[in-house]
Design a protein around this nucleic acid. Structure first.
Lengths: 206, 206
DNA sequence: GTATTACGCTACGACCCGTAGCGAAAGCGC
DNA sequence: GCGCTTTCGCTACGGGTCGTAGCGTAATAC
């Protein structure tokens, strides 16, 4: 998780408790202060560690916040609700619940913004957050194909493109709804979204 | 545009040229420095104005960047390409072209992140950027209905909800594709996206 | 001309940054 | 037990940015 894990055999080992305390303190600071007013000195005080300890483990604010936010998204699961539409609604609601938390909204958007000027940071976000959750799309598609709700893909490359497209559409829509439109992605909204995603705008309304 | 426009009848008027220079300098600084390293002192130097002048017109970094970015989105139009699908592809490509510019990506995401802790800022973003562009969705739907591609809406409230949903799906997907996935929203991608948006995932592939 | 406002400039205390240096603490191998 | 190695907490530092105050000057309305 940290910037580097020096596989040292000897010497005093790094405190794992300090790691957890620092990441939790970072999330708390994101809630109270937001991204721009968050200072590493303040995080160190909250976590009960020295500021120098923090700089020994993370290169800067960006990397620290990525790790602090990434932990939030690992709790996503894909419960079997019986149909593709219901499965999608279930996972989208979970995703919306995470994005409703201030530490997730604030931290995630800020590091994404910073990543437009920092390739290493963007790769860190991709590895720690985005690609880890693509498993949900893959699992959902496989389950839907087993049910006969989706046709089996013929071309492998085409299938991968579709997975990326779906991920962008789902994550993008929920993020935009939650953060930009500032409206809750509640059950009603998720239901309408899922209907359009599966059947399209041309289909007749409810 | 500024934080306040005191309708003063007497005294020396504010320089309109300074306004344009400051906003242009802000965009240039966003390109070169990014959000977090952008300082108001630096913007003032680039614009050739005193730092105090900048503080007299804008409350802070957030408000300044919102205004600087908002100007970028006013060039969006909805050209008549003959069909709903082609119209959507056209405007999405324009949107993607704007988001490909560093000053738009970096500035927009950063202020959206900050707006999660600042209601006034979020309202400013809504008024200056989001709601201004909803006209495109309205115009596209009206044109498609005139062509018979979309059914006329029966319920007004339902129709408004659909407009918001479409806006979140379109803007969200393009933003996520461009910024998070860091892949270009080129013609091929836009074509696939439009097909899903109109016909849904259940429809047969290409 | 006079009142009023905007402007440029300078200076200021306050805060945060990221790093260096030090002694103490906590493990590992013997 | 004992040394070796690495981490830890603490303090201190120069450098940078913040946002504001004060002042004299420039530009407009009446």
């Amino acid at each position: 998780m940290q910037s580097r894990t020096p596989v040292s055999r000897t010497g005093r080992p790094r405190s794992a408790a300090a790691d957890a305390a620092i990441l939790a303190a970072t999330r708390a600071a994101l809630v109270e202060l937001g991204w721009s007013k968050l200072t590493l000195g303040d995080v160190a005080v909250r976590a009960g560690v020295a500021k120098t300890t923090l700089y020994r483990r993370w290169a800067g604010k960006n990397e620290l916040v990525v790790d602090a936010v990434a932990e939030l998204f690992d709790e996503l699961t894909l419960p079997d609700r019986g149909s593709l539409a219901a499965d999608i609604e279930g996972v989208v609601l979970q995703f919306a619940a995470i994005l409703a938390r201030p530490e997730a909204r604030n931290g995630l958007m800020a590091v994404v913004a910073e990543s437009t000027r920092d390739d290493a940071l963007r790769e860190r976000i991709r590895a720690s957050i985005v690609d880890r959750q693509k498993r949900l799309v893959l699992a959902g598609r496989a389950r839907a194909q087993a049910r006969g709700e989706l046709p089996p893909e013929s071309d492998a490359r085409e299938a991968e493109r579709t997975v990326d497209l779906i991920f962008d559409m789902v994550a993008g829509a929920v993020v935009h709804r939650t953060l930009v439109s500032a409206e809750p992605a509640d059950e009603e909204w998720v239901h309408g979204f899922t209907r359009v995603l599966l059947s399209g705008l041309s289909a007749p309304g409810p």
